[in-house]
Amino acid sequence: MSDIIWPEGFVPGFTDNFCSNEVIIAGLSTKDIWPLLNTPALWPTYYENSANPHFYDDKGPELENNVRFYFETFGFPVESQCVEHVAPIEGQPARLAWHGWAGEGETRLDVHHAWLIEDLAGGRVRILTQEAQNGNPAKKLAATTPNPMINGHQQWLDGLVKAARKAK
């Protein structure tokens, strides 16, 4: 199975917080998942912790490399830039990642949120989402039990799968 590609400064184990969530589902494919994930306007329809997504510079409605966008999650207004965008291609995993940031100074939070979606044998799809975070808000999240990032991203995965099944 494939791995997330991490930029310098966001390698797990060297950041202030890290979370990893994964599901493997039968009966769905990368092509079923991709449109729901690649279109931020759809996120609030299946993930209640996402709100008010919009693009800058007359871009959108789908993500693409280097495009800037905004959304709100976990109580943070998140400015974001798509830094990895590999649409589904037969035999290769789809990849999506963005750098997100919020706050300034002591309240600054920087994240690298990555998604990997790949088809597996037997008509299954693997959806992996991982996020590495830096900054004081990340330190606070890492010290919280249960970790709200783990729970929130699991809700995102569960909602994504449910929406893909419904659309299919």
Results as ranks from 00 to 15, higher is better:
C19D: 14
E22W: 04
E22G: 06
E22L: 13
A26S: 14
G27H: 10
D32F: 05
D32Y: 02
D32M: 02
W34K: 03
W34D: 09
A41G: 06
P44I: 04
T45D: 12
Y46I: 05
Y47G: 04
N49P: 04
N49Y: 11
A51V: 03
A51N: 06
P53Q: 03
Y56E: 12
L63T: 09
N65G: 02
N66H: 08
R68G: 06
R68S: 14
Y70F: 15
F71A: 03
E72H: 03
E72K: 10
T73C: 10
F74W: 10
G75K: 01
G75F: 05
F76L: 11
V83I: 13
E84C: 00
H85T: 00
V86Y: 03
I89Q: 14
I89Y: 00
E90Q: 14
G91R: 08
P93M: 09
A94Y: 08
R95A: 04
A97H: 00
A97R: 02
H99M: 03
E104K: 14
T107D: 15
V111N: 13
H113R: 03
W115E: 04
W115G: 05
V125L: 10
R126E: 13
I127R: 05
Q130W: 09
Q130T: 07
Q133E: 11
N134S: 13
N134A: 11
N136M: 14
P137C: 12
K139A: 14
